[in-house]
């Protein structure tokens, strides 16, 4: 049914929205004086028990916070970087006792695994990859995919690493001609990988063989789309995209997220659902995260908006707190929390 028309679901007026669906459960303050850049969640074994921990990243420090009690967190480990600043935390779907981070200035120069020593007494870090890296994604089964540019061409490689962060193997995928911007796994298909390119194509690989299977153009309405989630159903591929480069246009603006259906056999695609801001709200996508049926985005207005992808409309709007715009937002991979951060180091857990 969802393919019969491009839905423009009922959009509640902005003043009906509030963060009521979101309950603030705790807040933590990154003590580092440098600018906060990212947040994430990871399972970490502490005294023989795996616990859902929070990872915060500032420009020159990454910290692991363990839960102390309701609403309370204690900084347990801190990895420091003196030369190259941290750009992002790279979430690894099924890994514990290890955090991956991307370091660089405008572009990623290094990807490192952050761990602690076997006695748990000291932090350590392992260099996994270096170069002019454009895109990186943590995959299931301790794999990490990245694309990088050399003088002549583009390399797309998969690193498999061991529990101690050491590299176990490297595999190259056939690179497309265009620069890859983002990667996404296809849910339930560990042998398949998607990427989006700078020319607004979705490309697909077979991870077992390294073959580049398809290049599928997904329209000229938006450039440089980001792929957040993909799943295959009944012979079609459903892909959730966002559009950081979309211009604000028309009375409703541009959609922040978009669900498309692609036929991999023909490379033809159609819009299934467009996810707009509530009426009266301005802004476009800055950065965001999708988990299960929920999408969250930091907007240029400084607010965070949340969509139920099945209902089709925005279900919560989180305005800036204490006159501080939101900078980044992530769904926790360890529980049902939303992690929202501000540049000054405040992290709010909803």
């Amino acid at each position: 049914d969802s393919l019969k028309q491009t839905e423009r679901a009922d959009v509640p007026a902005g003043d009906n929205l509030n963060p009521g669906n979101l309950q603030l459960v705790s807040k933590l303050k990154n003590p580092s004086g440098s600018c906060s850049v990212d947040v994430g969640a990871v399972w970490w074994e502490i005294a023989g028990v795996k616990q859902p921990c929070i990872v915060t990243a500032c420009e020159y420090a990454v910290s692991l916070w363990k839960p102390l009690g309701p609403g309370q967190w204690r900084e347990m480990y801190s990895w420091l970087f003196t030369e190259v600043p941290v750009l992002q935390i790279v979430s690894m779907p099924d890994v514990y006792n290890l955090v991956c981070v991307a370091l660089g200035n405008l572009e990623i120069r290094e990807i490192r695994a952050l761990l602690c020593s076997s006695d748990g007494e000291s932090e350590k870090q392992v260099l996994l990859s270096s170069g002019n890296i454009h895109a990186v994604l943590g995959l299931t089964e301790r794999r990490l995919v990245s694309s990088s540019r050399t003088l002549c061409d583009q390399q797309v490689e998969i690193i498999t690493f061991a529990e101690d962060g050491g590299s176990q193997g490297k595999q190259f995928l056939m690179p497309p001609e265009e620069t890859v911007l983002t990667f996404a796994e296809i849910e339930g298909m560990q042998e398949a990988l998607l990427g989006t390119t700078i020319m607004n194509n979705v490309v697909m690989w077979n991870l077992n063989t390294g073959q580049l299977l398809r290049k599928m153009h997904v329209g000229d309405s938006y450039q440089a789309s980001i792929c957040h989630k993909a799943y295959s159903e009944m012979g079609l591929l459903f892909v959730v995209l966002s559009h950081p480069c979309a211009k604000e246009r028309g009375p409703s603006g541009s959609p922040v997220f978009q669900l498309i259906a692609v036929n991999p056999k023909t490379a033809l695609s159609v819009d299934v659902m467009l996810y707009y801001l509530p009426q009266g709200q301005a802004g476009r996508f800055l950065e965001g995260d999708v988990k299960d049926n929920f999408a969250a985005a930091v907007l240029t207005s400084g607010a965070i908006a949340i969509w139920d992808l099945l209902l089709g409309h925005c279900t919560a709007l989180l305005p800036p707190i204490s006159d501080q715009n939101w900078s980044f937002v992530k769904w926790s991979g360890t529980d049902s929390h939303l992690l929202a951060g501000q540049k000054d180091g405040n992290i709010f857990v909803y």
Binding site: L3, K265, L268
Partner: peptide, 23 residues
């Protein structure tokens, strides 16, 4: 839009594309 816009659909698209694509 209808499924006709997307052309013929195959449930085994991944295997079929893998057998057609250059190694």
């Amino acid at each position: 839009c209808s499924q006709a816009d997307l052309g013929p659909i195959s449930i085994n698209w991944f295997e079929e594309l893998s057998s057609e694509a250059p190694p």
